[in-house]
């Protein structure tokens, strides 16, 4: 077996990117058949298809970088919660449509900025995936942003639901901009910029839409984190149990 050191930071980066798409995609597929109108089911399905497609690209590459013959499916179906590297935001419950949209918008806006930064990666493959994904995610931002505006400045009921959802989900955005040792090393090597650098631009993006939506940003110092270290909320193990159950029940086979 090859004893060469695994490029751990690169591997971690790819897991983080892949797991975000996988977990959020998994959350979104549950909405098929349950959206407010048929057109929205189709729109949401497109977003989920995009995110899951990106996840496959990130995770396949991760498996190659790790060099232990793990495929995208090995990584998706046979890791436990403590090995997942997604942000806490994406594993939160769908809640009502307001919560679904707020979670989506907060993630989409960060995601678009992050992909923009990663498009300049010194790693050509990362840059390539990021460039392709960004075209799709720019569209996600437009879509979720349009919904935020309509629900925020719609009826009294929709406004109240949006403000409640925002209060609940805003604290999870902090984690997206916290840099750890892995992030610092990746930045030093030019593979990915530091997450902290994205914060101001992201805040501008979000504030502009919130203004249009007559929504106010919650004042909340609580900043839960830990996703990058595999310290997740209680939601993740339920999500994974469902996602992985069939595949794990008959291992070592083709599906």
């Amino acid at each position: 077996m090859n004893a060469a050191a695994v490029d751990r930071s690169r591997f971690e980066f790819l897991l983080r990117a892949g797991d975000n798409g996988l977990i959020l995609g998994q959350r979104l597929v549950v909405l098929i058949g349950h959206a407010p109108i048929l057109e929205e089911e189709l729109g949401m399905a497109n977003v989920a298809l995009d995110l899951l497609g990106h996840a496959r690209m990130w995770l396949s590459y991760a498996g190659e970088v790790e060099g232990a013959n793990r495929t995208e499916d090995d990584l998706a179906y046979f890791r436990g919660a403590s090995e997942f590297r997604n942000a806490l935001l994406v594993e939160q419950d769908n809640g009502d449509f307001a919560a679904t949209i707020v979670r989506q918008f907060l993630f989409d806006t960060w995601h678009a900025r992050a992909l923009g930064a990663w498009s300049a990666s010194s790693d050509e493959r990362i840059a390539g995936i990021a460039q392709k994904a960004k075209r799709e995610v720019d569209y996600h931002v437009t879509r979720s942003g349009d919904w935020v505006a309509r629900l925020g400045d719609g009826t009294d009921e929709s406004h109240a639901r949006m403000q409640t959802a925002l209060a609940q989900l805003w604290p999870y955005t902090g984690e997206l901009f916290i840099a750890d040792d892995v992030d610092r090393e990746l930045a030093a090597r030019g593979i990915a910029g530091s997450p902290e650098e994205l914060r101001d631009a992201w805040l501008g993006d979000v504030a502009a839409v919130f203004a249009r939506a007559t929504l106010s940003i919650p004042e909340d110092a609580w900043t839960p984190s830990g996703g990058k270290r595999g310290l997740h909320s209680e939601h993740l193990s339920y999500l994974l149990a469902e996602m992985q159950s069939l595949r794990r029940s008959v291992p070592g086979t083709r599906w």
Binding site: L22, Q26, V29, V30, I32, L38, E39, E41, L42, A45, N46, A48, L49, L52, G53, A55, R56, L59, E72, D73, A76, Y77, E242, M243, S245, L246, R247, W255
Partner: peptide
């Protein structure tokens, strides 16, 4: 959809279900 046994199968099934919604539309 949530339990599809591979990522590829999950994507294919999602695309199919989305198509059906489109056909309804």
């Amino acid at each position: 959809l949530t339990r599809a046994p591979s990522l590829e199968r999950k994507l294919i099934l999602l695309a199919k279900v989305q198509d059906e919604g489109g056909h309804g539309l």
